[in-house]
Amino acid sequence: MSFPKDDVDPEATLSLDSGPVIASLERAQKPYVLEQLQGPGAPRRFVLQLAEMIIGRSLQAHISVDSALLSRQHVQLVRSGPEYACKDLGSKNGFYVNGVRAHSAVLRDGDTLQLGDVVMIYREGE
């Protein structure tokens, strides 16, 4: 295949001056965050960096909170595409999303997560 010489200059289509800019590649990423508002250690914020994270009393938990009301491994956060889901790992006191006791839930921006006396707000990233 050849380009008709007069019509198209292949060099020009590659030039940044004239080509479309893919803005999303340039934009700084907004992180996924859990803001802890209540409970031991609050206030503080946890950036969700891994696709799978555990919240619990254990020091080995990715998000470790020293509360007697938390199980050692209380819930697991699992990322799937652009969303995180929170799943109970058989904890003693369970967890609540916006006041509803859940076994698991796909989280949405602004959701309140409660595990024992630990209250956190989920902030969706981009």
């Binding site: 889901a85 109970d88 999303v97 916006n98 509803v100 859940a102 076994h103 839930a105 796909v106």
Partner: peptide
């Protein structure tokens, strides 16, 4: 009574 809005992706035990 605990009243809530059914929401997609929520699982109850």
């Amino acid at each position: 009574i605990s009243v809530f809005g059914a929401r997609e992706g929520l699982e109850l035990r």
